[in-house]
């Protein structure tokens, strides 16, 4: 069993004019998803990720950020032992809001994460002055 990955250097997000508010929220510990405008405003109302200004499902403009519950279930996981200085667990989780998103797993032994397990969002620091990134730990 590998130990929880705590020292792997995580690249800092660079941000851009479209996603800056997502990373501002991350600095405050708030995990956001994109939300399409409602059907009465010409959208589909569905949540998406990563966030866009135009909905990837129905292409309606005006999508906004909304705070997510942070609850998710593991969709898949792979523990990588080669090609990096130390092992880490990468996977996709299915958010309570619907989207399946890429992430790392932390807070427990790498081999302990199983498809179907409930997890919750945690923010992991990247570089000084840069925003943290969302990862998932056992719920």
């Amino acid at each position: 069993m590998a130990e929880p990955s705590t020292t792997r250097k995580v690249p800092a997000p660079q941000g851009n004019p479209e996603t800056g508010s997502f990373w501002d929220a991350a600095r405050q510990g708030r995990f956001m998803v994109g939300r399409c405008v409602s059907t009465d405003k010409g959208g589909c109302g569905k949540a998406h990720y990563y966030p866009r200004s135009i909905c990837p499902f129905c292409f309606a403009p005006g999508a906004t950020l909304e705070q997510a519950s942070g609850k998710a279930v593991i969709y898949t996981v792979s523990v990588t032992y080669r090609g990096a200085p130390e092992p880490y667990a990468i996977g996709y989780v299915e958010l309570e809001e619907g989207p399946r998103i890429m992430t790392n797993f932390t807070g427990a032994a790498l081999e302990s994460f199983r498809i179907g397990d409930p997890v919750k969002v945690v923010f992991i620091p990247t570089e000084p002055d840069a925003p943290p990134v969302p990862m998932f730990a056992p719920a």
């Binding site: 660079q14 996603t19 990563y50 792979s78 996977g91 992430t103």
Partner: peptide
Amino acid sequence: DFETPYGGQTSNLYGM
């Protein structure tokens, strides 16, 4: 920004 931090590389993008 939504994938690079997680260390996606060829082996785990198929392993998943």
